[in-house]
Design a binder for these strands. Structure first.
Length: 424
RNA sequence: GGAGAGGUGGCCGAGCGGCUGAAGGCAGCUGCCUGCUAAGCAGUUGGUCCCGUAAGGGGCCCCCGGGUUCGAAUCCCGGCCUCUCCGCCA
C-alpha cells in the first residue's frame, strides 16, 4: 500500500507508475473521495464535539440531582445526525480502502520503463553454456530414462500440473533443499524456519497477493484459509501488526516450503515437463531491514541466490525487470534464469525483490529504531533461493550424459551419500 | 470437538455507564542531587485522523465488528485469539 498522503501530494507521479506497471487503479476517484471524506469529517466532528460537551454538562447536572432532560432530548437528535453522517463516511472510506488495495507499488527510479519481458534488461551472465557431443535431451526424457519423473501418475492422482518425483530425482530434490538451506544459514546468515502452508486472508493481503492475484490462489473450501503460493507470505507476515524493537533489524529468515499456484491465465504455456506446475518446492529468503539499507540488501540477496547457481556450476543470467514485468507489490526486482540445454531455453529460478515499505504498510508491520523514538515502516525483501523443479531441470539437463544418466554436481555429493551418478 | 477463564498503553496491571486517553508499577526521556557502578527526588513520555502557514483546536482509538444509550473500556450480540481441563489424534 502506498502512503495516501503521498498519493494526494503526487497524483501524476502515481498515475504514471500505475500505467507503467500496466495496472488500472483509479487515482482520480481516490482524490475525489478523499475530498468528500474530509468535508464530512469537518461537519461530523463539530457535532461530536458539541455532543461531548453536552455530555459533560449532563453529567454535572445529574451529579447535583438536576434535570437534564432538555439537553438529552436535543442530543438524541444530534446523535441521529451523527450516525447518519458516520454511515456516509464509512461507505466512502470503504471505497477508498478498496482503491488503495489496488494501487501497485511505485517502481524505483532505476527500474527501466517497459511493457513486457522483452524490455527487461540483462545485467549479468555467468558460466559457460556447455557444448555437448550429442543432442542434449529435455528433462522429461531424462526423467523417464532414469525413472525419476512420473507426470502420468501425477495427472492420474491430481490432474494436469501435478507430478511424482521418484527414486534418484526425488532424492536429488531433497539433497538440493538441504544444500540450499545449509548454504543460506551457515554462509549467508539466515535463520531457518518451518512455516504454515495455510494462511489467512489478511496474510495474503499483507504481502499483496490479494486482491489482485486472488484467482491464482488455492482457497480451502469453507475456511478463510489459502494455500501459500510461496513461503514469502508466511515469513513476511510473521510479525504483521507488531512493532519490532530496536536492534532487531536486519531480520533474515529462510524457509523451505511447498508452493501452490493455479497458474490460471498461463494455459498452453510451458506445458511440457515440470516447468510450470501447480505445486512445487522452493527455498525462500526473506529480509526485513531498515529503509536506508534496503537497496544494498537487495544486491546482497541477489548475490545469495546467485551463489546457489554458482556452486552448482549452472550457467545463468540476471535481469532487471522493467516496469511492465514488475510484480504488483515490488519496487524493484531481479530475475535469475538458468540455462536448460535440453530445452534450449532460459528458466526463471529466482526473483529477488525489494518491496520497500509497501508490504509493511499493508500488514502494519513497524519498527522502532530507537527506544524512545517513533515507529517506522521497515522495508521488506524476498528472493527465491531457489525454486526446486527448475533447479532440478537445470541439473538434469546440464549434467546429462550421452546414455541419459546424470552426473552428480560435486557440491551435492555429500548430500547424496557420495553417489557419483543418477541412474535408473 | 466439549467445559471453563481471559484479551486494557512499549511491558505488567487497575478500572461504579458520565469527572478515564485511561490509576499504579516497570521501562524510556529531561532536570536536580549524590562519589560509587547505580540509588533518590521532581517533571515528562501513546497512536491516528481532521481544521490551521503556525501557535493551537478538535475527532477517534481499552482484540475486531455490530447493537443498546443523550453518553460505553465499562451493558448486549457476533467473530478472532490466548490459557486451563476433558476427548480425539501424527
Amino acid at each position: 500500500m502506498l502512503d495516501p498522503k503521498f498519493i494526494k501530494a503526487n497524483p501524476d507521479t502515481v498515475k504514471k507508475a500505475v500505467s507503467d506497471k500496466g495496472e488500472k487503479a483509479d487515482i482520480d476517484r481516490f482524490i475525489e473521495l478523499d475530498e468528500q471524506r474530509r468535508t464530512i469529517i469537518v461537519d461530523v466532528e463539530k457535532l461530536k464535539s458539541d455532543r461531548n460537551s453536552a455530555s459533560m454538562e449532563v453529567a454535572g447536572i445529574k451529579k447535583k440531582g438536576g434535570d437534564a432532560s432538555e439537553i438529552i432530548a436535543r442530543m438524541k437528535l444530534v446523535g441521529d445526525e451523527i450516525a447518519s453522517m458516520d454511515n456516509q463516511l464509512r461507505a466512502i472510506e470503504d471505497e477508498i480502502n478498496e482503491i488503495l488495495l489496488w494501487v501497485p507499488n511505485m517502481p524505483h527510479p532505476s527500474v527501466p520503463v517497459g511493457k513486457t519481458e522483452q524490455d527487461n534488461i540483462e545485467i549479468k551472465k555467468w558460466g559457460e553454456i556447455k557444448a555437448f557431443d550429442f543432442t542434449p535431451r529435455p528433462h522429461w526424457e531424462i526423467g523417464e530414462i532414469i525413472g525419476g519423473l512420473d507426470l502420468a501418475a501425477g495427472a492420474n492422482v491430481s490432474g494436469s500440473g501435478f507430478y511424482f518425483l521418484k527414486g534418484p530425482v526425488a532424492r536429488l530434490e531433497r539433497a538440493l533443499i538441504n544444500f540450499m538451506i545449509d548454504l543460506h544459514t551457515s554462509e549467508h546468515g539466515f535463520t531457518e524456519a518451518m512455516v504454515p502452508y495455510l494462511v489467512g486472508e489478511n496474510a495474503m493481503k499483507g504481502t499483496g497477493q490479494i486482491p489482485k492475484l486472488k484467482d491464482d490462489m488455492y482457497k480451502i473450501e469453507n475456511e478463510n484459509l489459502y494455500l501459500i503460493p510461496t513461503a514469502e507470505v508466511s515469513l513476511t507476515n510473521m510479525a504483521a501488526g507488531t512493532i519490532l524493537p530496536p536492534e532487531s533489524l536486519p531480520l533474515k529468515i529462510c524457509a523451505f516450503s511447498p508452493c501452490f499456484r493455479k497458474e490460471s491465465g498461463s494455459y498452453g504455456k510451458d506445458t511440457r515437463g515440470i516447468i510450470r506446475v501447480h505445486q512445487f518446492h522452493k527455498v525462500e529468503l526473506v529480509k526485513i531491514v531498515e529503509p536506508e539499507s534496503s537497496y544494498d540488501e537487495l544486491e546482497l540477496l541477489l548475490a545469495n541466490a546467485e551463489k546457489v547457481l554458482q556452486l552448482l556450476k549452472l550457467p545463468y543470467r540476471a535481469k532487471t525487470l522493467c516496469t511492465g514485468d514488475l510484480s504488483f507489490a515490488a519496487a524493484k526486482c531481479y530475475d535469475l534464469e538458468l540455462y536448460a540445454p535440453g530445452m534450449e531455453s532460459w528458466l526463471e529460478v529466482s526473483s529477488c525483490s525489494n518491496f520497500e515499505d509497501f508490504q509493511a504498510r499493508r500488514m502494519n508491520l513497524r519498527y522502532r529504531p530507537e527506544k524512545s523514538g517513533k515507529a517506522i515502516f521497515p522495508h521488506t525483501l524476498n528472493g527465491s533461493g531457489l525454486a526446486l523443479p527448475r533447479t532440478v531441470i537445470g541439473i538434469l539437463e546440464n549434467y546429462q550424459t550421452k546414455n541419459g544418466q546424470v552426473v552428480v554436481p560435486d557440491v551435492l555429493k555429500p548430500y547424496l551419500g557420495g553417489q557419483e551418478m543418477l541412474k535408473g
